[in-house]
Write a protein that binds this DNA or RNA. Sequence first.
DNA 1: AATACTGTACCGGCTGGACGGTTTTTGTGC
DNA 2: GCACAAAAACCGTCCAGCCGGTACAGTATT
Lengths: 193, 193
Amino acid sequence: MSKSSGTTPASAQESKSARTRRSLLDAAASVIQSDGVANLTLERVAATANVSKGGLLYHYGTKQDLLNALLDDTLRRADADLEALSDRAGRDRGSFAHAYLDFVRHRSHRDDTAAGVLAAAALDEGDLTIAQRQFARWQRRLLDADGLGETAALLARVVGDGLWLIDLFDLAPPDDRQRAALLDHVGRLIDEA
Amino acid sequence: MSKSSGTTPASAQESKSARTRRSLLDAAASVIQSDGVANLTLERVAATANVSKGGLLYHYGTKQDLLNALLDDTLRRADADLEALSDRAGRDRGSFAHAYLDFVRHRSHRDDTAAGVLAAAALDEGDLTIAQRQFARWQRRLLDADGLGETAALLARVVGDGLWLIDLFDLAPPDDRQRAALLDHVGRLIDEA
DNA sequence: AATACTGTACCGGCTGGACGGTTTTTGTGC
DNA sequence: GCACAAAAACCGTCCAGCCGGTACAGTATT
């Protein structure tokens, strides 16, 4: 097949281990989305990843380890997305704030793993510190390095997080038109601040 | 003591049952706050309420029943608080929106049960519909009966919910000064809308 | 007499984690 | 190239503990 070109797996920068770990993380995310966090069990994750339970425990010695790794991974991806959006914006002021808003613009509650993971971590006495640090970093970025006033920066953050929460729990989310209008409006407020 | 004036408890509009149920709800909230939702067990709730496990199950036949009741109760209180704040505001426009903002103004993540309950319900496959209906009601109230424009109403909602989320998970919440500045600013935006 | 409990004993299922064994990969000397 | 050992990756099973829920007989309260 296309994989393993010969004797040496060589070229791949991914070790076998890393690949398995990734598939375990993906499996965990998938289980959370389809079955809910309450039904997130090691066996189910292992099965979804086509790995035995023992194999899972080899990589993540405890369920908490798995959760932490998943949370970390999810936040890392979100951060990367934000950076990309920020770069693409190419403004001299408020590019990160706009990225923050754009991040939630086209995001339905359907495709959101971060939320479930966050909740899981919170409930299972998990290390929210991972998430807390990340949000602190974003907050600093908005306040110190985005060229906006304090209040404008906070507004972007709070609106973004608010929509995220609403989507997460499906708490009467505004429809697409309302959402777009709100985000446009907030974007304008930020630019004029 | 001040209670039970004589032979008949009479005057009290609270039956024995109602009092016990309340103490069970309070106990559940207390356990969630002190031990986390993950450690919310029927026995612990019963013990905290000075009730036997059998007694708990007499009132709430299943754990889910207890959770639902707690969520309902918490939302009901929040709604009452909002109404009170709205009445006190005494504006002809946007009094509910201002109430919504004031609700989170002086609220630290410490004294927040609703969040934990919400998370618990979400995780335990619970009926989020209770919460969803309540938020839908608030949203309708803001949009239809508060005399504001659509975007202004949504702004109040999203900012309120956003701060709530941030407090809940302690995700780098803005300090008191920043928070006050943000809420004042949003309040002004709403009035000028 | 009805309601509101207490207390205990128990069950059954689930799950996290341990553990010993097996396969695969990797490193090394020849 | 090859043998071969050691380490890494992984399997499958077993177990102990916990927890929700049942059952029920008895006691207190109203």
